[in-house]
């Protein structure tokens, strides 16, 4: 069985986000970019399944500009067998990404597709569900535990839902999106970084995959949340009451 894992290159989780002055998006120039943390968890789970003997190959896919190769290299250094880079300079919304992944799944025939439940940059939480729908496969989202049964060809998945856990059985092939508590991703070790250098990354374009990239959604504006006003120290109860009465008008 092959496992396909989608990994997205995003602004690093720890970086303070700045909105571009022209409000067309967030600043990504000279900003540390890393693999989306949920995608890292997805990849880690795929690697563990492979190491347990349930899969033969883990393929990491990234869609985006040329620097996505760095994200794929990270994936290869973690242990993925090969990478596919669908190169594009446009930024796609989830439906287009889902179409690209569907078209790759048609070529690669994986038994499982792993995705992070959402990307920390746009917080869409849509791609996994759309891929499953386009492929007509079962889906298990927000996975916090994945157990494979090779003989029955099913996956048992615990999902984190409001107020508890839900356990699902899905027939393979299936799409699984991963939640934070599923696992703790491994670090990229030096020997594996070295090995990753000789692993192949296949470059493709949207045209190669014959995907219609037309989108019905247009982003009008990206703005920062309003700045919180700093507090003031009052020196006495009287001053506080005065402010509550005359400035805040609450008493």
């Amino acid at each position: 069985m092959k496992i396909l894992v989608a990994v997205k290159r995003v602004v690093d989780y720890a970086v303070k986000i700045r909105v571009k002055p022209d409000k067309t998006g967030v600043e990504t120039q000279n900003v540390k970019m890393s693999m989306n943390p949920f995608c890292e968890i997805a990849l880690e789970e795929a690697l563990r399944i492979k190491e347990a003997g349930f899969a033969k190959e883990v393929i990491a896919v990234s869609i985006g500009p040329s620097q996505c190769v760095d994200t794929l290299r990270t994936g290869l250094a973690m242990g993925a067998d090969r990478g596919i880079h669908v190169e594009t300079n446009s930024s796609f919304l989830p439906l287009t990404i889902a179409k690209i992944l569907k078209s790759l799944a048609d070529v690669e025939n994986p038994g499982l597709i792993f995705l992070g439940k959402q990307a920390i940059d746009d917080d869409c939480n849509q791609t996994g569900q759309m891929v499953a729908a386009l492929l007509g496969w079962p889906q298990a989202t927000f996975a916090s535990k994945v157990v494979l049964d090779k003989d029955k060809n099913v996956a048992t998945v615990d999902r984190e839902v409001d107020g508890g856990l839900e356990t699902l059985n899905v027939d393979l092939p299936a799409v699984i999106t991963t939640d934070l508590r599923l696992n703790q991703p491994r670090y990229a070790s030096l020997p594996n970084i070295m090995k990753a250098k000789s692993k192949p990354i296949k470059k493709m374009t949207v045209q190669d995959l014959k995907v219609d990239i037309k989108s019905d959604i247009e982003i009008l504006e990206v703005t920062e949340p309003p700045k919180r006003k700093s507090g003031v120290m009052v020196s006495s109860v009287d001053e506080l009451i005065d402010k509550l009465k005359n400035e805040a008008h609450v008493v």
């Binding site: 989780y13 720890a14 890393s34 070790s189 030096l190």
Partner: peptide, 14 residues
Amino acid sequence: VSDGVIAQDINQAS
């Protein structure tokens, strides 16, 4: 060096 890892993101570095 007998082994080592390189941080892949700021979180790992921290």
